[in-house]
Computed example of a mutant assay.
Amino acid sequence: MKKTIVNIILIVSILVSCNEKSKTKEILVPEFQSIMNSSNVNGSILIYDLQKDLFYSNNFDWAKIGQLPASTFKIPNSIIALETKVVKNDSTLFKWNGEKRAYKIWEQDLILRDAFQYSCVPCYQEIANKIGEKRMNEYLEKLQFGDMNVTSKNLDVFWLEGASKINQFQQIDFLKRLVNSELKISKTTEEVLRKISFIEKNERYKLYGKTGLSIRNGNNNGWFVGYIKMKNKTYFFATNIEPNENTNKKLFPKLRKEITIKALDYMK
């Protein structure tokens, strides 16, 4: 009887300890929700402190919901293109065929670096079609980028529509493995990804990332994922937002980055 009681106490202690340990890894930040409220959007800011191994967010439940990756998929798509030699480097040229495109900035010849920065969907659809269904699935399994649903019928749109999904924790896990050289890809590919995902730098930090926007059943879902390197700190981030009844729809695409920068400023 005594042995049974001791075992029960031991099990409870272990469970409590594990629970406490998991709680220390996730810190709720009300200030992040204030940033969301002031921008009139719904969603979650998720920031990971690499040195402290801590996650910060205003809404951890939202951060665990899978969403279409939209143009954040240009990160793994670029990796796969480089690893399969579909593109050679960040200066590989994509010629415009003269047809009208959704955005004027896409209506020109673009090198990979600019296609990534301008989020040129037709350029990356060309890449996906050249990679092909088989190699795309093989590399996605290797890279472990969310749960992508790739078939021959949706090869050039699966990241924009359909059943593919990734959550904010998975986005950060993928980026962390990329930055820490854990994806088992070439150093050359890693260097190209650093170049094309670079956004800005100043005396305090270097910022890398990619935005994404999907529209499903008339509903907008916006991403901004990436990482920021400072002198003694590295933060990874994945922001996912949706408009509400008070959102300025014209400003919505800009809010993804603005909200994230405000949250990172709070962390610094």
Rank of each mutant, 00 (worst) to 15 (best):
I259H: 10
L183K: 13
M36S: 11
F73A: 07
V12P: 02
D265I: 08
Y208W: 03
S39E: 03
T84Y: 11
K210F: 04
Q170E: 15
P30M: 07
S119V: 04
P30I: 04
V87R: 02
S34M: 13
K262I: 05
Y235L: 03
S78K: 05
K25S: 11
K250E: 15
S13G: 15
K153H: 14
V29P: 01
K88V: 06
I8C: 06
I27H: 01
Y56G: 03
K130R: 11
L110I: 01
E258A: 12
Q171C: 10
N37A: 14
K130E: 02
E31V: 06
A128Q: 11
K100S: 04
Q125H: 07
I79Q: 07
F174R: 10
K21I: 12
I65L: 10
V121S: 11
N221K: 13
A163G: 06
N221T: 15
K165P: 05
V29Q: 03
K85F: 05
K231E: 10
R135M: 12
E161A: 12
K142D: 02
K195R: 14
T4V: 14
N97V: 05
V121A: 01
E141I: 07
N89T: 08
E245Q: 15
V179E: 14
K153E: 15
R101M: 13
I215A: 08
N137V: 00
L143I: 10
N137E: 00
F174T: 06
D61C: 07
V192C: 05
V121P: 08
S164R: 08
M267Q: 00
S164L: 01
Y56K: 07
K201G: 01
I105A: 02
V16I: 15
E126L: 04
T189G: 04
I105L: 08
T239L: 09
A102L: 14
K3V: 14
T239S: 11
I259R: 05
F94W: 08
N89M: 06
Q108M: 08
F174Q: 06
S91L: 03
S17G: 15
I65R: 12
L183H: 11
T72V: 00
K3I: 15
S13Q: 02
F73N: 00
T151D: 05
F32H: 00
V86E: 02
K153I: 11
V87F: 00
L207N: 02
G218Q: 00
L155G: 09
N89S: 09
I172E: 07
W62N: 03
D61K: 14
K134Y: 11
I47W: 00
I8R: 04
K201W: 00
Q171F: 07
F145H: 05
D109S: 01
G209E: 01
W62I: 12
L143C: 06
K153L: 13
K268P: 05
R256L: 09
I127W: 02
K231D: 07
G43Q: 09
V225W: 08
V157S: 13
T72G: 02
K249S: 13
N167D: 09
I199Q: 08
N58R: 04
N244K: 12
F237A: 03
F55Y: 15
A115C: 12
A163K: 12
G66F: 07
T72H: 03
D61R: 13
I172D: 10
F169K: 11
R113A: 13
D173H: 14
D49M: 00
K23L: 04
M267F: 05
G209N: 01
T260C: 04
A128M: 10
E200K: 06
S17I: 09
